[in-house]
């Protein structure tokens, strides 16, 4: 019955869109930044790594509070009118997922033999060719970083609730809908939405794991 409800389809698609986009943006930020932290030595690198690793454990509700205060009408970016929009949720989720992708990327590249980089450059690789080869070499942990980044945002509720407002047809996603149904005492609906969320998470991670393991057999 729940799955015939057009609201459920809308909420599901919005969840996938918002968390998918947030993961993609986090990848675009985290992959180059994590590569820099993983491969280059420069003053302040340890401090940056510590900050990124701390960021991996950021409570979503704290992120939600910070983003809400920033985007609030009277806040510094209030003029953009982003509070209670899907964009606000994406911003909050990027802040949650980007440190995860960055930290795991840096760790993955630091685990490689540091002489590999010298060997690649010694073979005539350009900086870009060297980095692409290193990414290829670390593709399994990098895909794990992607999965962890997606997992951290598809399942969070605090930030989405605070900056999205759980508005029907606008910012309601699966996690916030589950909270709403639970608060209403509609446990059957909440459980069904929970199962749907698990199913989506499973399918996306199954696809990424398949790509990852196919890569390991090549």
């Amino acid at each position: 019955m729940l799955f015939n409800n057009p609201d459920v389809l809308e909420i599901t698609l919005l969840s996938i869109k918002v968390s998918g986009l947030a993961t993609l943006i986090s990848l675009l930020i985290g992959l180059p930044f994590g590569t820099l932290l993983g491969l280059r030595k420069f003053p302040g690198r340890s401090l940056l790594l510590t900050l990124v690793n701390t960021g991996m454990a950021l409570p979503p509700v704290v992120v939600g509070l910070a983003v809400a205060m920033t985007l609030w009408r009277s806040g510094p970016l209030g003029g953009l009118h982003l509070i209670y929009t899907p964009t606000a949720i994406i911003i909050a989720q990027v802040i949650i997922a980007a440190p995860v992708v960055t930290g795991l990327t840096a760790a993955a590249l630091q685990a490689l033999d540091p002489r590999l980089r010298l060997q690649l450059l010694g073979l005539g690789a350009s900086r870009l060719q060297m980095v692409l080869s290193i990414w290829r070499e670390a593709r399994l942990p990098l895909l794990a970083a992607l999965m962890a980044g997606f997992g951290s945002v598809i399942s969070e509720v605090g930030a989405s609730m605070m900056v999205g407002g759980n508005i029907r047809h606008q910012t309601r996603v699966l996690t916030t809908a589950i909270v709403l149904e639970t608060n209403k005492g509609e446990f059957a609906s909440a459980i069904a939405l929970g199962i749907l969320l698990l199913l989506i998470t499973f399918l996306i991670n199954f696809a990424l794991t398949w790509i990852q393991q196919r890569g390991s057999k090549r």
Binding site: R115, L123, Q129, S133
Partner: peptide
């Protein structure tokens, strides 16, 4: 130049692709 280190430091690919990688870079 050509550089060979004490450990082969081969990439996770076929032997053929490993031998050809410097040529691909160039």
């Amino acid at each position: 130049i050509g550089l060979v280190m004490q450990d082969p430091l081969l990439l996770d690919m076929s032997v053929y692709e490993n031998i050809a990688i410097g040529l691909r870079f160039r």
